[in-house]
Each structure stands twice: as C-alpha cells, then as structure tokens.
Design a protein around this nucleic acid. Structure first.
Length: 254
DNA sequence: AAATTACGCAACCGCAAATTG
DNA sequence: GCAATTTGCGGTTGCGTAATT
C-alpha cells in the first residue's frame, strides 16, 4: 500500500511502517507453529525486527484466519449502530459481536460513516444531501426487506434517521451505560432471538460459542514461550471455524 | 487533463490493566 | 508488595485512491 518513505525505524530499532509480504509470511508461519500470544517473544524470535505490539496488531487486524475482508453489510452496520449506542466507543467489545471483524475495522467504519464531520461548504452540502437522500431511500428499502424482520424497530429508526444528526459522541456515550453494565445491556435485537440470553455468560459472552478452547490455532499452541496469555484469552474472542460460521448470517444468529 | 478534495484503511502512539519475577 | 514487562484498547495519523471540480 505504502512505501517505506516517511516511516523508517523506531528509537528501539524496530522496523516501522507497512508490512511486506515477507514479513507477513514470517509472522504467519511463526504463529502457525507457536500460536498466538507472547508477542514480544514473536518479535524477538521470528526475525521480524518488529515490535511485539506491531506484530500483534498485524496479526489481529490482517493476518488472523477467519477475518472478513469485504464491506460491512447492512446487518453488521445495524449491530454496530445498536451496540455503539449502548456502549459508546468500546470497539473491542462491539467487535466480539461481529465475527470476522476487528475493532480497528469497526472503529474506522464508524469514523468514516457516522462520525459528525466538519461542516462542509454549502455547495458540497447540497450535493451531499442529494446523495444521502438517494442512499437513504435505498437503505430504507434494504432495511425494510432484510432487517425489520429480525431487528428491533429501534435499529431501523437509528440507521435511517438519527445517525447524521447524532450529537457529539461523548454526549452519546454518557447517555448509555458502559463497562460494568455492557454485557448485561444487550441490544434489543439479541433479546428477540430465542434463548440468546442463555448463551451469554458474565465473562465469556456467548459462553461456549466463543470458547477459545475450540479455536484450532489456540489448540495448537505448544511452545513454552507461547503459552496462552490469560489476558488475551479472556478479552480477544473470535471465530474461524466452519461450524461457527454456520450460525451466522451477517452477524445474526439463526 | 490536471488539481483538489474526500474517503478508506493500515499502522502508530499513549495509556491503563494485567501479568510476571 | 512492588517494579518491570507485556498486552490490549482507543485515539490519531499518514498515505493511497477515488471522486469531483
């Protein structure tokens, strides 16, 4: 995507900037053999000359199996809207409900699509308004067809009308509970699905469904250096098995 | 066709929490 | 119990590309 111009090397001597295919290969191979976690160890051992932080980020956001590469679907958008309304900028928490999507991706999506932008010129505004009207028409149709059956009326309302007029994010965040209540305050859409609440546990979110023990990559971890880090195990849940994918259709359980 | 603007995304930074020795 | 280290998260930035003027 980008050359190395303007990036270079950190003070600690770690390489910075865009990853090369060779580096990706090295990291992928290392994780395949030793599993995730212990990123500082990865950085030292894999001859990558990248900081552990950088390795983790690259793996989580780009190389990890099971990541969805395509556009955010209307269904996923609905989930993002609803969950953001509940939890604010808790991107990693929101990402747990969108299999294959990363917090970074969701964060970027929100920023580019929903966050209040600086006031454009009148000319631009006029043009944008027209575009938005067309888009909203189309989205409304799609939403009516695809979502209203599954999602609470609340979501449809938000996605069609409220987003562009949304107040400052901080304001919105303060309207909703965060942290302590986040796992209990599940979106209405989840409540609409029979027995969803039964699958949600206090610390595991969907309990067995998200059980990392089922993850083939984590299962394959053997090296001492790469023993599972309790922290990452608890907070970074994702799916990559075919079985789990069967349960989803754009982020919804059927 | 060239210049400008807007958008999308990858990657970095700083901080806080968790873990380790 | 404490300091050092590691990890994860949220915010921000830099850059390529598409769209518009």
């Amino acid at each position: 995507m980008v050359g190395l111009m303007g990036w270079g090397v950190s003070e600690q001597g770690w390489r910075k900037g865009p990853w090369t295919p060779e580096e990706d290969k090295l990291l992928t191979e290392y994780v395949r053999l030793h599993g995730e976690g212990r990123w500082s160890c990865v950085a030292r051992s894999a001859e990558l000359n990248r900081s552990g932080k950088s390795c983790r980020l690259r793996w989580v956001n780009y190389l990890r199996p099971g990541l969805k590469k395509g556009q955010i679907t209307p269904q996923e958008e609905g989930i993002i809207i609803e969950l953001h309304a509940l939890w604010g900028n808790k991107w990693s928490t929101i990402a747990r409900y969108l299999p294959g999507r990363t917090d970074n991706e969701i964060k970027n999506y929100w920023r580019t699509h929903f966050k209040k932008k600086a006031k454009p010129s009148q000319k631009q505004e006029k043009r944008k308004t027209q575009l938005q009207l067309d888009q909203q028409k189309q989205e409304k149709q799609e939403n009516d067809m695809n979502m209203n059956k599954l999602v609470s009326p609340h979501i449809a309302e938000v996605s069609n009308e409220k987003i562009t007029e949304r107040q400052d994010e901080q304001e919105m965040v303060s309207m909703y509970p965060t942290n302590t209540m986040e796992d209990q305050w599940l979106p209405k859409m989840y409540q609409n699905v029979a027995s969803w609440s039964d699958t949600i546990t206090e610390d595991g979110l969907w309990g067995g469904l998200w059980n990392l023990q089922d993850d083939p990559y984590r299962m394959s971890q053997t090296s001492d250096c790469n023993k599972i880090h309790p922290q990452s195990g608890a907070s970074t849940a994702y799916l990559c098995g075919a079985d789990t994918l069967n349960l989803y259709n754009g982020g919804y359980i059927f």
